[in-house]
Amino acid sequence: MSLVREQVARLADWVSEGDVVVLSGAGLSTDSGIPDYRGPSGMARKATPMTYQAFTRDPVARRRYWARSHLGWRTIGDARANDGHRAVARLQELGLLRGVITQNVDGLHQAGGARDVVELHGNLARVTCLGCGLLSPRAELESLLRQANPHFAPIAAEINPDGDVELDDAELDGFRVVDCTGCGGMLKPDVVYFGETVPPERVSRSFELVAGARTLLVLGSSLTVMSGRRFVLRAAKDGIRVAIVNQGVTRGEPYAGLVVDGPLGEVLPQVARQVTGLYRLET
């Protein structure tokens, strides 16, 4: 038996014991056509993420973001859940998961069938008004942006993990930003930008889930930023098992009892199939 097969079998045993909390990152969605932040090498990709300060204080940066995001939404909005997402939903269906925490903003866990997902960084499918606080579907904003910019159709070079695209500033001439139809306030994707704080209720709910876990299962995250790594640190401190499935480098390895370096779209369905077999034997 190969090392990876042995690791998958061991992971299936851990998961079959139940009380698993999933913590997922961008690597889980790459099979859906959404790039991750670092790739297997662990080196950050060239895209510079939007910051809250730049978005709210700089009209040019805000216009640039919305133009690029308007183009990128065609990919994000059309993305479909992959086998990894569906495998997580299957484990939840079997009653083996205490919860799912995701750092992703693509909504693909829910599209794959998962329920009650804690979206640490929000969801690109929602838009919030910074003036009146109104939440609205992204589809409504996209319709308004198309009406305001009927001739805006540049070719995007490359989509970024945050849902916007690489686009030359010369292509932005004439692009019009849309404001809140209710109060005229500034609209922003309902996601946590760099420089923002994750809402405390999401953080506390996540720590609560981890505290009651038998296993914290990290999927597709390099754990480079503290937003996700703090849950691994807490689990390790409290003696909770940590398992990681990721392609490439991850900063969580010193705290993990099991690390599987492999494609999530292959590893997770294998785990789900093996766990389903174990579950049937026990019941």
Rank of each mutant, 00 (worst) to 15 (best):
R5M: 12
V8I: 15
R10Y: 06
A12L: 13
D13S: 11
W14D: 09
E17W: 00
E17M: 01
S29G: 04
T30D: 08
G33D: 06
I34L: 15
K46N: 08
P49C: 08
V60G: 03
V60I: 10
R62E: 06
R74F: 10
R74H: 12
I76P: 02
R86A: 12
A89N: 06
L96C: 12
L97R: 11
I101E: 03
D106S: 07
G107K: 07
Q110T: 14
G112Y: 06
V118Q: 05
L124M: 11
V127L: 01
G133C: 03
L134P: 00
L135T: 03
L145K: 05
R146P: 02
F152T: 14
A153K: 09
I155Y: 04
D162E: 13
D169K: 00
D173V: 14
G174S: 14
C183V: 10
K188G: 15
F194E: 10
G195E: 08
E196P: 14
E196A: 11
E196R: 13
V198L: 11
V198P: 15
P199S: 02
P199C: 03
E201A: 13
F207Y: 15
E208V: 02
L209A: 04
A211L: 00
G212T: 11
R214Y: 08
L217T: 04
V218Y: 05
M226D: 06
R229E: 10
F231G: 03
L233I: 01
A236L: 04
G239V: 10
V245R: 06
G248N: 09
G248Y: 02
G248H: 02
R251C: 08
P254N: 14
V259A: 02
V260F: 13
V260P: 11
P269G: 04
L278N: 07
Y279G: 00
E282K: 13
